Amino acid sequence: MSVLEDIKNSIITYKPAKTKEFCQQALDEGIDPQVILSEGLIAGMAVIGEKFKLNKIYVPEVLISARCTHAGLDILKPILAAAKAVPLGKIVLGTVKDDLHDIGKNLVAMMFEGAGFEVINLGVNVDPEKFVEAIKEYQPNIIAMSSLITSTLPSVETTIKAIIDAGLRDQVKIMVGGAPVTEEWVLQIGGDGFGKDATAAVDAAKKLIGVA
């Protein structure tokens, strides 16, 4: 079994320490870090995503596997940065104003990173103006908003309006997710994409920027 298979298997068997160890081994063997990322870490998370989609595993397992990916990324990131490796795209992510839910949003962030996106995580209770400033500062491909309770859905609309009023709407795609959110509603309020769960969010993001 190759070390890339070892990395992949360490993710789907939930062993972060092994993921880190095998990523270092792969580097020591002279394997290109971009190959380690795509054929090791991302390949492992792709299996996890498929299992999650089929309800063969659940959120706790996905969170553990995402920790594996982060353990590997800790080894690879400095080298990828030095080599100026190009991510699939850049996503600014946050939970909208007055919503303090964090776990689901962080799970999506981990899945985005595992799929090869650069993620700027703004946290929770994010003001519309902060999303606007993040677009100006980071120039992302996608703004991804999370709204986990019905009472904060108006904050999504307010944020989209703020982006439009700032003249930035044409610069980004807008995704929204969360328990009370539907695809029809997202499109109705002027958004571009929707993910009913973390795996679907990754698929939607890829489609929005044309890399699906």
Rank of each mutant, 00 (worst) to 15 (best):
residue 146 S to E: 12
residue 147 S to T: 13
residue 12 I to M: 13
residue 109 A to Q: 05
residue 189 I to C: 04
residue 187 L to A: 06
residue 132 V to C: 00
residue 129 E to N: 14
residue 207 K to F: 01
residue 196 K to C: 01
residue 44 G to P: 04
residue 88 L to N: 11
residue 181 V to P: 11
residue 82 A to W: 04
residue 39 E to S: 15
residue 198 A to Y: 01
residue 205 A to W: 02
residue 175 M to A: 09
residue 35 V to R: 13
residue 144 A to T: 10
residue 93 L to F: 02
residue 68 C to D: 08
residue 49 G to P: 02
residue 194 F to P: 03
residue 128 P to F: 06
residue 101 H to V: 11
residue 205 A to I: 08
residue 192 D to E: 03
residue 204 A to Y: 05
residue 100 L to H: 03
residue 126 V to H: 03
residue 18 K to M: 14
residue 209 I to Q: 08
residue 210 G to I: 05
residue 175 M to H: 05
residue 3 V to E: 01
residue 22 F to M: 10
residue 204 A to C: 14
residue 13 T to Q: 07
residue 120 I to V: 15
residue 132 V to I: 05
residue 124 V to F: 09
residue 183 E to D: 13
residue 53 K to V: 12
residue 12 I to K: 14
residue 125 N to K: 06
residue 16 P to T: 08
residue 200 A to C: 02
residue 60 P to S: 10
residue 119 V to R: 05
residue 131 F to T: 13
residue 200 A to T: 09
residue 60 P to T: 09
residue 85 A to P: 09
residue 142 I to D: 02
residue 96 V to A: 03
residue 84 K to G: 01
residue 2 S to L: 09
residue 27 L to P: 03
residue 139 Q to G: 01
residue 27 L to W: 00
residue 97 K to D: 00
residue 199 T to L: 00
residue 144 A to N: 01
residue 85 A to C: 04
residue 94 G to E: 11
residue 65 S to Q: 04
residue 58 Y to M: 07
residue 178 G to W: 03
residue 96 V to L: 07
residue 139 Q to I: 13
residue 134 A to S: 15
residue 120 I to F: 13
